[in-house]
Every structure is written in structure tokens, then in C-alpha cells.
Design a protein around this nucleic acid. Sequence first.
DNA 1: TATTAACGGATAATGATTATCTGTTACGAT
DNA 2: ATCGTAACAGATAATCATTATCCGTTAATA
Lengths: 166, 166
Amino acid sequence: MTESGARLDHLVSVLKGRGYRLTPQRKAVLQILAASDGHLSVEQIYARVKKDFPMTSLATVYKTVTLLKEMGEVLELGFSDGGNRYDGRKPYPHPHLICIRCRKIIDPEVTALSHLPQEVASSTGYRIVNHRLDFFGICPECQAAENQAGNNSAGQAARRNSIRRW
Amino acid sequence: MTESGARLDHLVSVLKGRGYRLTPQRKAVLQILAASDGHLSVEQIYARVKKDFPMTSLATVYKTVTLLKEMGEVLELGFSDGGNRYDGRKPYPHPHLICIRCRKIIDPEVTALSHLPQEVASSTGYRIVNHRLDFFGICPECQAAENQAGNNSAGQAARRNSIRRW
DNA sequence: TATTAACGGATAATGATTATCTGTTACGAT
DNA sequence: ATCGTAACAGATAATCATTATCCGTTAATA
């Protein structure tokens, strides 16, 4: 049994265990979420589903993803400027590293964060139910591309204007 | 000189230093951002600006806030489900604690995070330019309200359905 | 295989944000 | 002080990811 196969079985059993139907369209979405290495957009899921089920509607992808999110089996990475991403393999909070140029997202290893929610809870009295840690940066590939673009005015001006003091 | 007065002076000098005009509408937005304890929505800023300048347009508030954000003088807290918030007093990354019931946002004290960006940068090769840490929970007031609502079905069913394994 | 609530497809609606257009104004130069 | 002008403000249309709605279809159970 592959890892994605086990994950798919789990998603199917959770769905059925809660009395939801397993339709071909849903199964296709589950397969994609279980097989992907995470961080898919709805449009990406939609495009892949349509390879097997060309009649599938975008609304169905939204509905299935939302259903899985509400069951706690998919992690939604929402962004205010559109293009939310969905992780069907690690549906629990974990840090993300996002390239602001190509929008690639990876999961960096970050040490010793598990105590933070408890720390915040006891210092504030809030009941913590979720958290999120995102790092934004430029991936090595896009750094190389920027250096290629190189010594022309546009890139340098843009870089000069992005002053950061942290 | 009050703290918000100093902050306002700083915002004004940055604006003028970059050659932008200081209009009454902009000054009103700057004052509000400098005086508020952070985390204002555009609608909140808009409502306060209109007390002094009733003719002010919502678009102007958006434009001013975006301008300050691009200058690095305002921190934008974007949320995928709308209602972004703006912090004009601490425009650098810092943790936030968000009540998922009443949408109140506070700045919790969280220890020893400053090394994380560097850690992620060196382990991944990304150039880190920003980061964000949000905790989501229920504030003490909303917890009390939930307990008041108490032993009726709706609240309990909702709580039963929000299964969390982390 | 029949029943039926749940579901899928198509598309309209939503709503925060952005773009566009036009008349006005802050501000350095005169 | 006034002028000239690019920058600005107001009004509102456009955008676009997401959600809601409606109706025909179907998975799951008996």
C-alpha cells in the first residue's frame, strides 16, 4: 500500500463514516488530494479532475474541498489576494514557506514550535483552536532568475524600492 | 509629545520625504492609524475619517492604506474571507491572536521567534522577506458568552462538530 | 429495482478590492 | 501671493475568487 493509497482509504472511510456519498467526482478529488505533495489550488484540482471526468464542475471541486476542510481532513491555506491552497496530506497546522515570485509552497523544517499555542493560551486566556505560520521569500530558482534578469534598470529599481528593516 | 503624535510625525515625514502630497484626507487616515491600537479594518478607518471629512471616499482610504503598506509603514493582515486589517503602529511582523467569534485581534507576547526566519533561510536557500504568525482562538469574553448560551442544543452541537486533533 | 435524500452541473450572486475617469488641489516655482 | 501642473480625491464600474441557488441526476439502502 502506497502512502497516498493509505491516505485515500482514510479519506474515503471518514467520508462514508459520516454518511456522505462517495461519488466519482468526489473520489477523483480525494485521489488528487491524497496523491499530491500538498498546496494545490482549486484550479489545479479542477484541471486534474477534468482529465478523468471532463464534465466535472468547478463548483463541485469547491464543495468537496470545503466538505473535507470542515471534517478536518484538508488544511486550507487562505490568502487575501486569492488563490487559496489545499493540503490533503497534512491537515494539521504546520509552517509554510511561500515564494512570492512563483507562488511555490514548501514545508520547511522549523524546530520547537509545539509549545507555542499552550504558551499563548495560558498568557492570554484564549482557547486556541488553530494557528498558522507562514514565511514569505524568494526561492533559489527565482533568485537565480532575478540575477539573470540582472543589470537592467527595472529589476534593480524594484529591489531598491523594497526596503525592509526586519 | 504623545506616542501617537510621534508616530504621526514619522508617517508624515516619510510621506513627504518620498515626494507624496499631504492632503487633509491622507492626514486623517494617518492620524487614525497612528492613534489606534492597531488592527483596524478599512471600513473602520473609513467611518472615522468621515467624522472629520464627510466627503471622503472609501477608495481614498484604500489608496492611502495601500500607499503606506508599500512604504512599509503599515502592516496588512490579510484574510481570505475578507475584512483585512491594518496596523499603523507596529508595521513589522509580529504574532497576532485572533478571536474567531468576535474578530478581535490582540498582540500576544511570544518568546524567542526572531531566529526563525534565519533558520528557515539557511535550511532552504530561500531569501526570507516577511513572515506571519497567527493564533486563532476564542477570547475570554466569547468563552463566557458561549457558556451563558449554555446547555441548549445549538451551541453544544456546534462544539461537538468542531473536532480538533491538535 | 424502487425510493429518495444527497449530489452534481450550470450559472447567478456576492463582496472586498482595484481600476478608471474626471474634476480638484497641494505645493514648488515664479 | 499666484500660477501651473502633476498628483490627488471622489464616484462608480470592473474584477474575480468564492458562495448560493436551482433543478435534473444518482448513490446507497431496502
